[in-house]
Design a protein around this nucleic acid. Structure first.
Lengths: 172, 172
DNA sequence: CGCATTCGCTTAACATGTTAAGTACTTCTC
DNA sequence: GAGAAGTACTTAACATGTTAAGCGAATGCG
């Protein structure tokens, strides 16, 4: 047990029982985390069977949809940070699932595209992946799912302009 | 089941444009990931200023609310896997933010509690954290936020019974 | 042209996510 | 009451998240 300071105004452990900060399990980040985990738990086994991690799968999907892209663009699409993407691309390239070639106009940029082998791998994973998604949709309800996505999108929008660093350093 | 089996010869990057899987950015895992990131982006700077990571903060909050807990219980509450928690507790203990003592009844178990110093640290972080949460609530709308949480909770429930294990029987 | 600055990407370093294996202790069973 | 089986936690190993620094290639400007 923590011996606690007799200062209730501090919202320390003492106050925690009586005036808990928002119930921990109801905090928005936790709700989102748990929901996402519940969803991903469905997909991971299938991906794993095909030797793919969640992030690798995201990258392949993104590439299949846009044909070819620069690394930065791909990072934005697959929602990965540069360093993570850099590592994963190295591995995917070693496995011949993607191809890279530097742009002629700008030697800093490299264009990434999915390979023949990558396409085949995707084709082998997609059915199971779609089936899982369908089952999720069926259980939760298609309409409700769409509504949820809308609400999540609006949440993003609501927070978009709130500075990414501490306090708005308005950058225009 | 495959709604539309992809023809490898035809499902290359080119075909992907005509028959994309669900628009990537609208997939549920991506929506949840982006929404959560949008939220956490607000909190991270403040936590970082106090030398805490998101997970460490989760643990402290959980401990403050329940006084003392076994490691396994704490893992469930803070939604962390055992190995992650084990490492973090080691670090938090080294920083004297938590205390550990093995239970007398069962020497395998150890009871974890927040320390005096941990309580003070929480007290110094909480105001800013609450302020951020309030701002998020204000922007998004309290009612809408509650509704979102409910929908997320139901999503969890919907998927709860879907096996976390098998699902991959297609192997023979 | 010369050169500081910016840009695109990678590497580095550390913390966590994830799965598997290990360790120490408990309980069950005969 | 000794071994088998289970439990609580930790370690290990690898992949990713996250921030900072590095590097080569453009770009801006004198």
């Amino acid at each position: 047990m923590a011996k606690r300071p007799a200062d209730p105004a501090n919202a320390g452990a003492t106050a925690a029982r009586q005036v808990p900060m928002r119930d921990f399990s109801r905090s928005l980040p936790m709700s989102l985390l748990r929901a996402r985990e519940a969803v991903m738990r469905q997909f991971r086994p299938s991906l794993r069977e095909h030797g793919l991690t969640e992030q690798q799968w995201r990258i392949l999907r993104a590439l299949a949809a846009i044909e070819a892209a620069e690394v930065t663009e791909l990072a934005r699409t697959a929602f990965l940070l540069g360093p993570s993407l850099s590592r994963i691309l190295r591995d995917l390239e070693a496995r011949n699932l993607i191809e890279r070639k530097t742009a002629k106009a700008d030697l800093r940029r490299s264009m990434v595209s999915i390979s023949e082998k990558g396409v085949k791998l995707m084709a082998s994973v997609a059915p199971s992946s779609e089936a899982i998604y369908s089952e999720i949709t069926r259980r939760y309800g298609a309409r409700k799912l769409a509504e949820l996505q809308d609400m999540l999108a609006e949440l993003e929008r609501s927070l978009a302009e709130l500075g990414a660093s501490d306090e708005a350093i308005a950058e225009e």
